[in-house]
């Protein structure tokens, strides 16, 4: 004789607490996250071991002075960003290992230096150094 077990009522899991938890998580991530798209430009490269001033290669070196007004000066001539990029592109086309040295004024703004580094990268410059002058003790 086979006894049939009475069918259990189907257990229902309440979904309301789950919604509550997810809503709290959603609000938490919306409030605590920042949504600005950020990139990075390396300031210290592992290959920058050699001190500045040591001749590394016979390639030419271009020195860009960055004034307090943020205008780059190359060989005594103030350049805008497009002209600077074109000049650097021509120099890199002639000598791919051209080294570009940036000597910024301490009063220049960060945006000015980033713009010069950005234009140099767009021009194909692979060897870029930023000089940092230190006060004499």
């Amino acid at each position: 004789m086979m006894i049939n077990r009475p069918a259990r009522p189907r257990a229902l899991i309440s979904l309301v607490p789950m919604i509550d938890v997810m809503l709290i998580l959603l609000v938490f991530f919306m409030v605590t996250s920042t949504y600005l798209n950020l990139d990075m430009i390396p300031a210290v490269k592992p290959s920058e071991g050699a001190p500045i001033g040591r001749p590394q290669a016979p390639a030419g070196t271009l020195m860009i002075r960055l004034g307090a007004d943020g205008i780059p000066v190359l060989r005594g001539t103030a350049l805008d960003a497009e002209t600077l990029q074109a000049t650097l592109s021509a120099a890199v086309a002639e000598e791919p290992l051209t080294q570009v040295v940036v000597l910024p004024s301490g009063a220049a703004q960060t945006q000015a230096l980033i713009t010069v580094m950005d234009r140099a990268a767009l021009a194909g410059v692979t060897r870029l150094r930023v000089l940092r002058l230190e006060a004499a003790p």
């Binding site: 950020l38 990075m40 390396p42 210290v44 220049a108 703004q109 960060t110 940092r132």
Partner: peptide, 27 residues
């Protein structure tokens, strides 16, 4: 972006001197 480099570049040098091998500028 308008911070003067005299307040920024010494931080790079300071980090490098302390031994940081990976210092980046946020853009």
């Amino acid at each position: 972006r308008t911070a003067e480099l005299r307040n920024v570049l010494p931080l790079v040098a300071q980090g490098e001197a302390l031994g940081f091998r990976d210092v980046v500028l946020v853009v």
